[in-house]
């Protein structure tokens, strides 16, 4: 199994790169490639099972966009071929039509998905999300956290990663969260996603290597943590007014 982490020297906020640390512990035989901004990504000319990009400061997001721009068609090809991608937090926005910089100006994205991003730099949103998503299996309950300046507006027919049963989605007016196309997963949820959602992680492991029975590292602990959080998130009293959709 080959997992490529893009630009971890700048895309490393919110502890989210532990998504890949954890996958590496589930599959100690996996090769984890850490690709620097100045390097050519491994996916350009070799097979990679999972391509990961995590949260970054706004300036680094623009740098990552510029570095990925030459490989736009290759990324499109890989998504269409069914290669697994996990783009978390603001990484997904790079693949949209436009994104905003901190000073308010617009930058063209890679244009792979019909979505646009706007930033509210003085109005950070934090909230929980509860929904369901599946990957090659039955949908499982997903729990996650949002902490972000950016809000995504997308075409209505662009499939989401999940539809929030509680919490907001791509923005404060929709329950549709993130993007899902084949094995491409783009989501603003942090936590990290794969650690907070072991059942989903098991499905991802099965997709990455269909010939090997997926096993979770530290299974007892990760399941206990998941069940405790799920019990919390399904309790209506745990939800604050600002975590509801705006009408």
């Amino acid at each position: 199994m080959r997992i490529e982490m893009l630009y971890p020297e700048v895309a490393n906020l919110h502890g989210d790169n532990h998504n890949i640390v954890y996958l590496g512990q589930c599959r100690p035989d996996a090769e984890i490639i850490r690709t620097a901004l100045t390097a050519t990504p491994a996916f350009v000319d070799s097979a990679v099972d999972l391509i990961y990009l995590g949260p970054s400061p706004e300036s680094a997001q623009v740098k990552a966009l510029a570095r990925l721009a030459p490989y736009r068609e290759r990324i499109r090809e890989l998504i269409e071929e069914g290669t697994a991608f996990l783009f978390t937090h603001n990484a997904l926005e790079i693949l949209g039509e436009t994104l905003q910089t901190a000073d308010g100006s617009e930058v063209a994205g890679l244009g792979l998905f019909p979505l646009r991003t706007r930033l509210e730099m003085l109005n950070r949103y934090s909230g929980k999300v509860l929904g369901r998503a599946g990957l090659g299996g039955d949908p499982v309950q997903i729990v996650g956290y949002k902490t972000q300046f950016s809000f995504v507006e997308a075409a209505e027919d662009l499939p989401g990663f999940l539809t929030a049963e509680r919490g907001i989605g791509r923005n404060r007016q929709t329950r549709v969260e993130g993007v899902r196309q084949g094995n491409f997963i783009g989501t603003s949820l942090v936590g990290p996603l794969l650690i907070n959602n072991p059942e989903f992680t098991k499905q991802l492991l099965a997709v990455l290597d269909p010939d090997t029975e997926p096993t979770l590292a530290h299974e007892d602990l990760i399941m206990s943590a998941y069940q405790a959080r799920l019990a919390d998130f399904t309790d209506p009293k745990r939800w604050h007014p600002w975590e509801q959709l705006e009408s």
Binding site: L13, H14, G15, D16, H18, S126, G127, K128, Y145, T147, V190, G191, P192, I195, N196, H240, W242, E243
Partner: peptide
Amino acid sequence: CENICWTYD
């Protein structure tokens, strides 16, 4: 709003 991601930071 809780967010435990700080433990991974």
